[in-house]
Amino acid sequence: MRSVWRGAISFGLVTIGVRLYTATEEHDFRFHQVHREDGGRIRYKRVCQVCGEEVAYADIAKGYELDDGRVVVMDAEDFDKLPVNTDHAIDVLEFVPVEEVDPIYFQKSYYLEPDKAATRPYVLLRTALERSGQLAVVKITIRQRETLALLRARDDLLVMHTMLWPDEVRKPDFEFLDTDVEVRPQELKMASSLVESMAGSFDPGDFSDDYTVAMQKVIEAKAEGAELPERPEVEEAGEVIDLMTALERSVEQAKTARGGRSAARKPAAKKAASSGSSGSSGSSSRKAPAKKKAKPA
């Protein structure tokens, strides 16, 4: 792992030197654009729309288009005028209880590694966060952009989650929110027992990205000149029943499925795919417990 940022947490008057590492891998397969005819890698030639000339990199500026169509051209020296927070600090602004932060704000996650000399205050902050059930709200500048973020204790480490700014979250103004919807108590009760019968602790290990596995197969098959994996069959829709009936039958099915140890979570198709069969990302057998679908009237 290579660190993507180096700086220090400032927590009150305490400074903790840390490095950041990306916690998740973004790209599974990195494709390039290639010329089909000769397999040559595609490059981009920059051409000016006004004069039609090819533009050298040095002659490119940043343009911001105003609403009236005028373009403000920004040169490098314009950006130099902007005071950039270059102190490489993760400033702790305040602490908030874990449950108060809406997950909608979360963006990227980073692991924090303490510098050798900073292990003690690092462990101290981590322990204090864990014991108090709090998150630290921080501000950090990454690639010249100020970002709001959270520090959280995760096992032995501090993890930083960058956040969206509040005005980057939209407000849903759906019509149905203004209408009075009558929920029948029996429906709610039946739905509750369905939820209970499908409840379990969330184990991320139960889930994997079948698409990536299938993509791997396509690439391998093409590399060998072999035939491509077959397409899985698509399931058809079932009869039309009402909401209450659908809930009742679902509870029954979920209970039956429970007997065979949460069939809903371990799709059979996944096992088939990982044991090397060619029927890659089959969705048909993953439908348990909902074998038959129904549209409530």
Binding site: Q49, I60, A61, V73
Partner: peptide, 17 residues
């Protein structure tokens, strides 16, 4: 957007092999 410093023209990317 990327613009040509000289005339403010928008820069287009053309694919070249």
């Amino acid at each position: 957007h990327e613009v040509h410093r000289v005339d403010g023209g928008r820069v287009r990317h053309r694919r070249v092999c």
